[in-house]
Amino acid sequence: MSPVNYLYLAALLFAIGATGVLIRRNAIVVFMCIELMLNACNLTLVAFSRMHGNLDGQIIAFFTMVVAAAEVVVGLAIIVSLFRSRHSASVDDASLMKL
């Protein structure tokens, strides 16, 4: 099987993730969509690594996983504390980013 198919799959996953981020309001779902996008990126990295025959891409994919895990920890903590104070997980309710 040609490694190019992996790239198509990654593009599809990324598009699904991006759409999810843009149209869903629930913070948890947005979060999962972001994870989806990250994993799509991981997939391209691994696929390219295979195509070019060196391991750099795979190494970066490991880094991405670690960062994603750390992000999840921080992000979920924020969502939980937001939910506690507002009783909602909608991202549009938290429009506090402007002065």
């Binding site: 981020v21 991202v91 429009s95 980013m97 402007k98």
Partner: peptide
Amino acid sequence: LQNGFARSYAVSMF
């Protein structure tokens, strides 16, 4: 443009 909605920021980023 700086409306505070995370998703509109995301749109501009995309």
